[in-house]
Simulated assay, not measured.
Amino acid sequence: MIVQGLAFYLFAAILVASAVMVVAARNPVHSVLFLILAFFNAAGLFVLIGAEFVAMILVIVYVGAVAVLFLFVVMMLDINFGELRSGFLQYLPIGATVGVILLVELALVLGAWVIAPGAPARISAPIPPAEQITNTHALGLVVYTDYVYLFQAAGMILLIAMIGAIVLTLRQREGVRRQEISRQVTRRREEVVAIRKVPTGGGV
């Protein structure tokens, strides 16, 4: 238990410090690297509580895909961050106002927090032994029984966000040749093939 407690405090301390550095770092590449470090430490915390499947999903999906994608995008965009910071003080009052509003909303939510009447019964419900049910099976039972509608709603929100991102980035620009599949399929031989008779010793 002492080793688990020390590991918990170690992972938690590094996680909090790396999360702070994600926001405080001036270089966005460093922010992404600190974000990857935070994901790894969060995965370590999940392993400590016995949620190995969630830990592996966190490492594979977020570290292996999302964070690496952020890193490549930040490195390839070639953004002038000095120019972006030049107008920081101009938008500081608006950002501070939004931050205060969010803090007030969080305080109101936490102040009105109540425990559901059925929560104690669910907590005291018998839990099957760990050797009879796997971590993935237990997670599937919770997600696809108690929270199936919320799971489907999250999927719909992600689908709408993906469609919105595609629509926003799809631009029709002048002078850019685009592929037309229907025109390629329906074209005839006479339209694309030209037969020329080249004399002997001559060129085209």
Rank of each mutant, 00 (worst) to 15 (best):
A42P: 00
V59S: 07
L58H: 06
N80S: 09
A96P: 03
F53V: 09
F40Y: 02
L102H: 03
A96L: 15
G87D: 10
T97L: 15
L45M: 02
V54H: 08
R85C: 04
F88G: 09
V59C: 03
I57Q: 09
F39N: 04
G87N: 14
L58V: 10
G99L: 12
A96W: 04
V100H: 02
Y91E: 12
L35H: 09
R85Y: 09
L71Y: 10
G99P: 04
V63H: 01
L84G: 05
V73R: 11
L37R: 06
M75Q: 12
A38E: 03
A65Q: 13
N80V: 01
L37F: 05
F72V: 15
G64Y: 07
M56G: 04
L69A: 13
L89C: 13
I94D: 10
A96N: 10
I60S: 09
F53W: 08
V100K: 13
A65T: 15
G64C: 09
A43Y: 00
F81W: 14
L35Q: 06
M56N: 06
V61F: 11
F40D: 01
F53D: 07
L69T: 11
I60N: 10
L89D: 15
I79K: 09
G50W: 00
R85W: 13
S86Q: 15
I36Y: 06
G95V: 15
L103D: 04
V54Q: 08
L37V: 08
A96R: 09
F81Y: 15
I57K: 04
L89V: 15
F46Y: 05
L103W: 05
N80M: 06
F81Q: 10
A55T: 02
V68F: 09
V61Q: 13
V63G: 06
A51C: 07
V61D: 12
L92R: 12
Y91C: 10
G82L: 02
A96E: 13
L37W: 04
I36C: 12
I49A: 01
L58S: 09
G87P: 02
V54G: 08
V98F: 07
T97D: 11
Y62C: 05
F53S: 13
V74H: 03
L69Y: 13
G87A: 07
A38K: 01
A55I: 03
E83S: 08
I57V: 11
L37S: 09
V104Q: 01
I60C: 08
F39H: 02
V47P: 01
P93A: 06
L84P: 07
F40V: 02
V63A: 12
E83W: 06
G50L: 00
V68Q: 15
V54C: 04
I60H: 10
L58C: 09
V54M: 14
A55M: 06
L92V: 12
L35A: 08
I60L: 11
L45S: 04
L58W: 06
V59F: 07
N80Q: 03
I60R: 03
G50S: 00
M75Y: 10
A65V: 15
Y62K: 12
G99I: 10
A65K: 12
A38H: 02
F70V: 06
F88D: 14
I94N: 08
